[in-house]
Design a protein around this nucleic acid. Structure first.
Lengths: 125, 125
DNA sequence: ATGGTGTACTATGTATGATAGTACACCATT
DNA sequence: AATGGTGTACTATCATACATAGTACACCAT
């Protein structure tokens, strides 16, 4: 069994969905620092996705510093899970602006948006 | 001149960037209800994009109820800019969760996230 | 030596985005 | 009635990204 689940939907790349599911599991604490991360072949088999797609997920996680490779033994969740703040922050800023625009378009109040975020924040604790 | 500007970047579809820029202009009030919205050909010329790409933008805005067609005269920003809350809210929820996960990954505190949102909120007033 | 691991590479098929070009219905304007 | 601008619709082509298939190799625990 995998330490996380993926609810596949259409319209988004498979590797992106798996990547996000893995990140979520780490953030949630379902995958703690030091825990073993599923191998490429394991991901491929369990999720019934192509080995290369699984490899892409693994590579991205490694690039972002979320997992570390223990040669011969597999991968584990990084102890110091500090990503590159600068570049990542730019992306986050774009998503933030996008989110606020859509929220305003939906006539949400700033308070309602904050409440919604608080809700998600607590769900991931 | 167009009533809004687009800062094109790579990696994202052109129609999506133009679409977002238009939404932002409406939310900001740079484009007020009743104002004329640029024609497909105008968008195509000014932004140097394909007519079909411009048409795609126009169609999406119409689908979301942000602009209305005045046959023979062009399009105008809708008076009642109330989108379909149900379906839109689902998409917003997905973006919200995504955002919170990334914020946590960046070790942001909940307070910092709220502050960032407040900042963007005020920028769009 | 064996087997599992990550990594790398080529190749193919599919889906999406972007472009080019054309055509038509609609209506304000003249 | 004629003109011109508007939105809309359609086919076709090209480029790119995504997904898949298959193979190969270096690494290391066992």
């Amino acid at each position: 069994m995998l330490p996380f689940k993926v609810q596949f939907t259409q319209g988004r790349p498979v590797y992106e969905q798996v990547l996000f599911a893995a990140k979520k599991a780490i953030v949630r604490g379902q995958l703690k620092p030091g825990d073993a991360f599923p191998s490429v072949r394991m991901l491929s088999q369990e999720l019934r996705i192509n080995p290369n797609t699984a490899q892409k997920v693994s590579a991205r996680l490694r690039e972002e510093g979320l997992i570390e490779v223990k040669p011969g033994r597999g991968s584990v969740v990084t102890e110091n899970a500090r990503a590159l703040k600068s570049r990542k922050n730019e992306l986050l800023e774009q998503e933030l602006e996008r989110l606020v625009v859509e929220a305003k378009q939906l006539k949400l109040s700033e308070q309602e948006l904050h409440d919604a975020i608080r809700c998600h924040w607590e769900n991931l604790s």
